[in-house]
Amino acid sequence: MKDLSQAKNFDEFMEGIWRQNPVFVMVLGMCPALAVTVSAVNALAMGFATTFVLVCSCLLVSLMRKLVPKEVRIATYIVIIATFVTVVDYVIQAVSLELYEALGAFIQLIVVNCIILGRAEAHASKHPPATAMLNALGMGIGFTIGLFALGGVREILGAGKLFGVSLFGANFQPWVVMVLPPGGFFVLGAWLLLFAAIRRKKGIPPAESKGCHVA
């Protein structure tokens, strides 16, 4: 019995990291994924900020799932998500102004990131707090991994660095396009191609798009 529930919990956690990875499988939250991933640090910061909002919102939504009438549930979710986004906004300002300026408006825009509303509606509102948090954490980490995969490649090619550490010496020729918006599309496209190739090789049918709009 205990083993079973543990396996189930693990499944909940791993769902977002691999099987339903928000970036590579569900292709959700593309706006921040393309816009702020010019460096690995930015990507991780954005990922952690989103994870924090995701986990906190899902916890609160799950706790209140019996109290909230379904007519106003979306409004409630949005208020809850907006609250935690505001909290994250203040915290990042207090931690590092540089990071705050690098992420720009995309911190506030976490509020419309459809991963969060999607998780709140599809998962947290139907599961007890512990499960909801576990699932949200997995999703958040999956999103962070996705952003890091973009940000890492873009920083390596676009600046010859990773986490600000020079990899190729001073004479490196940066690929300017990689830190410009088109570079985000190129790298994302290359990753999606890779994952599609893996899926085809394993014989898994292409994932049907089950997201909301691409925010």
Binding site: L67, V68, E71, V72, T76, V79, I80
Partner: peptide, 11 residues
């Protein structure tokens, strides 16, 4: 009334 109450509480 219940809707308003819930929203008020959450807010």
């Amino acid at each position: 009334a219940s809707l308003v109450r819930t929203l008020g509480l959450v807010s």
